[in-house]
Amino acid sequence: MRTISQGETLLFTGFDNLSGVNAGLFREFLRATLRPEHRFVEVDLQRATFMDSDGLGAVVSAHKAVAGRNGGVRLKGAPPMVRELFRITRLDTLVEFVPQA
C-alpha cells in the first residue's frame, strides 16, 4: 500500500484487498500523509478483488477526514463485489464511484 499526493487529491494505491488485514494500515497512512490541501481521497481499487466491513470502516474514516473540506472519497475502478458491499450497507451515497482509467 502507498499514497500519492496529486494536488487536492490523496491517492491510495497498491493493494488487492481492503479488509481486516490492512484497514489499520490504511488509517495510519491516512493520518500520516493527509495534508491540509487534500480535499479528496481517491482509493484505487482496480486491482482489488475483496473488501470487508473493516475495509468499509477505513473508507468511512477517510470520508470523515475530508468531508469538512468540501471534499469526499472517490473509489476508482471498484469491482462489482465492492459496489455491492456499499449498496447493502447503504454507504453508496457516501462515496463517488469513478471508472478506472
Binding site: 470487508d52 470523515k64 458491499l85 450497507t89 454507504l91
Partner: peptide, 19 residues
C-alpha cells in the same frame, strides 16, 4: 440494524445476516 452512517465499525453481523 445498521450502525450510524459515520460509524467506522459494527457492520460485520449485519453483512453476515444480509448475505
Amino acid at each position: 440494524p445498521l450502525p450510524d452512517f459515520e460509524a467506522e465499525g459494527g457492520r460485520g453481523l449485519f453483512l453476515m445476516r444480509s448475505l
